[in-house]
């Protein structure tokens, strides 16, 4: 033990608590709900948390994490979800085979990313404004496509089993949405922290001009990032559609705020406040568990949102206060 390690000061301890606020919060809510609602700890319930609350939000939040890593944000992830869903449903209704329809769905989502890429990397609009514009335009486009916002149902009978597989199937006993989420998480982690692409994206989010002065074609990376974001979000569109067998215009936006919240909660896990995949996953887990636990605790249903909000607020407050303190020393 060197002298430096021995002289651990109180601020250091406080800071490490601050950094681990997310894990502490997660542990605390877990214990709390296990105590408040015995049903919480049952295998069936935990599985339902993972499938119903966690899986889809996790995928959207992973997409958001890429945008935030690149120093931006994507308010149009919901639009990509919707476009994918619409394309998927339309192609199935047109009698296309499911794999083709699914592929078409992904393309539908990626169109949104391409649009963003042109605005952000091409013209140079700030990501917030560009994707806000996309969100609005996307909403209108959907309403035009659906006669003013009518849902597009698939007939209750005659839907091929392959269609239902994404939402309801299992692979070796594990629900497909969960498998997909796990794959997306693993892939995203690999890309963001172990590839050239991920490194450049992170660096561009931290100090874009240095990336440019390092001889890296920054715009190409920015464009690729927003296309990737929409591609990942499109996966959610497919699963969602398969689960509920209906396309509801502009329904994807429901994920937006929680995805942003989870991503930024996740940054508190990183010592330097960087967006990161494990942090985002823990953030989503926290949000999912709180939503489920509050429900089971027999509290008024609506306290859920208050609880979630307060929790996000406290984790962010600790995280930021902590970063401020770190910057001062």
């Amino acid at each position: 033990m060197s002298a430096r390690q021995l002289s651990v000061s109180i601020p250091t301890v406080a800071r490490s608590i601050g950094r681990h606020a997310l894990i502490a919060a997660l542990a605390a809510v877990f214990v709390l709900f296990a105590w408040l609602a015995p049903a919480f700890l049952s295998g069936a319930n935990l599985l339902s948390v993972l499938v119903n609350n966690f899986a889809l939000l996790a995928i959207v939040a992973i997409a958001m994490t890429f945008a935030v890593s690149a120093g931006g944000i994507d308010l149009s992830v919901g639009t990509a979800i919707d476009f994918a869903s619409f394309a998927f449903v339309s192609l199935v209704l047109a009698g296309q085979p499911i794999p083709i329809a699914a592929l078409g769905g992904l393309v539908g989502g990626v169109v949104v990313g391409l649009f963003n890429a042109v605005l952000i990397a091409g013209i140079g609009i700030s990501p917030f404004l560009a994707t806000l514009g996309t969100l609005f335009v996307g909403r209108s486009v959907q309403q035009l496509l659906t006669n003013g916002g009518n849902p597009v149902y698939l007939p209750p009978t005659g839907v091929p089993d392959a269609f239902r597989f994404l939402g309801h199937g299992t692979i070796v006993g594990i629900p497909v949405p969960l498998v997909v989420a796990a794959l997306v998480v693993a892939g995203a982690w690999l890309v963001l922290s172990r590839t050239r692409f991920g490194r450049v994206v992170l660096a561009s989010g931290i100090q874009a001009s240095v990336v440019r002065y390092s001889g890296i074609a920054l715009r190409r990376y920015t464009a690729a990032t927003y296309i990737l974001v929409s591609g990942i979000a499109a996966i959610v569109g497919l699963i969602l559609t398969s689960t509920v067998t209906v396309y509801i215009p502009s329904s994807g936006n429901a994920f937006l705020l929680n995805a942003i919240g989870a991503t930024f909660i996740g940054t508190t896990l990183s010592p330097h406040g960087r967006p990161n995949i494990p942090g985002t996953v823990l953030g989503v887990l926290l949000l999912s568990i709180v939503a489920n636990g509050l429900l089971l605790s027999g509290l008024n249903f609506y306290w859920q949102q208050v609880g979630t909000g307060l929790l996000i607020f406290s984790v962010l407050a600790i995280g930021f206060a902590n970063r401020k303190a770190a910057a001062r020393t």
């Binding site: 605005l119 806000l132 514009g133 609005f136 209108s140 003013g148």
Partner: peptide, 14 residues
């Protein structure tokens, strides 16, 4: 349909 409004707003801001 007044749903076009959001599209017009979106295009305008872009």
């Amino acid at each position: 349909s007044s749903t076009l409004v959001s599209g017009v707003q979106g295009l305008l801001i872009l």
